[in-house]
Amino acid sequence: TTEYTFTDDEEARRAIEELKKRGLTFRYEKHGTTWRVRVD
């Protein structure tokens, strides 16, 4: 499991789109302004 942290909404959304394109399994949660994206 790899975890990424983003504080920029645009950056987080781009990363999420990219992961979807690659067909990877991931989860994300947003805490205030911080996004945590975990890739299995």
Rank of each mutant, 00 (worst) to 15 (best):
L24K: 07
R14D: 06
V37C: 03
Y4T: 03
T1G: 10
T2F: 13
A12H: 02
D40R: 08
E18N: 09
E18F: 10
R14M: 10
E3V: 14
R22H: 08
E29D: 07
R38M: 15
T7K: 06
D40A: 10
T33Q: 11
T7D: 10
R14S: 08
T1M: 12
T7P: 03
A15I: 11
Y28S: 05
Y4H: 03
R14G: 05
L19F: 14
I16Y: 02
W35L: 04
V39E: 02
V39I: 11
V39F: 05
E18H: 09
T2S: 07
K30I: 09
K20S: 09
T25V: 12
V39W: 04
I16S: 01
T2L: 13
T25Q: 11
E3T: 13
Y4P: 01
F6S: 00
F6A: 00
G32H: 03
D9E: 14
G23W: 02
V37G: 00
D8P: 01
F6C: 05
T33G: 14
E3G: 03
R27S: 15
W35H: 07
E17G: 07
H31R: 09
A15S: 04
L24T: 05
A12V: 06
R22I: 08
E10K: 09
K20H: 08
T1K: 08
Y28Q: 03
V39G: 01
E18W: 14
G32R: 02
E29C: 13
Y4R: 02
A12F: 15
V39D: 01
T25C: 12
L24F: 12
G32T: 02
E29F: 13
T2M: 13
T33K: 10
L19R: 00
T1Y: 15
T34H: 08
F26W: 03
E29R: 06
R38Q: 15
V37R: 00
T1H: 12
G23P: 02
R36H: 15
E18L: 10
E10T: 11
Y28C: 13
F6G: 02
T1R: 09
E3F: 14
T5A: 05
R22L: 14
L19S: 01
G23S: 03
V37K: 00
K30S: 03
D8R: 05
D8W: 03
T1Q: 11
L19V: 03
G32I: 02
R27N: 09
T2K: 11
R38A: 11
G23A: 04
E11H: 08
D8I: 04
Y4V: 04
T25R: 12
T34E: 12
F26I: 12
K21H: 06
R27A: 12
R38N: 09
E11G: 05
Y28R: 01
E17Y: 10
R38P: 01
R13Y: 13
E10H: 10
K30N: 04
R14W: 08
T34Q: 07
K21D: 06
E18P: 00
E3Y: 14
D9P: 12
D8N: 14
R22W: 09
Y28V: 15
I16W: 02
F6W: 03
E11D: 10
T25F: 11
L24H: 07
E10V: 10
D9W: 15
K21Y: 06
G23K: 04
Y28G: 02
E3D: 06
I16A: 02
E18Q: 09
E18T: 08
D9V: 10
R13M: 14
R38F: 15
R14N: 09
R38H: 14
K21A: 11
E17P: 00
R36V: 15
R36A: 05
A12C: 11
T33L: 10
T2Q: 11
L19I: 06
Y4D: 01
K21T: 08
W35M: 03
F26S: 02
R22N: 09
A12N: 01
I16T: 02
D8L: 04
G23D: 03
R38K: 12
K20A: 09
F6T: 02
A12L: 14
D40Y: 15
G23T: 02
R38T: 15
R13E: 09
T7F: 13
T1W: 15
R13L: 13
T34S: 06
R13K: 11
R36N: 07
E10I: 10
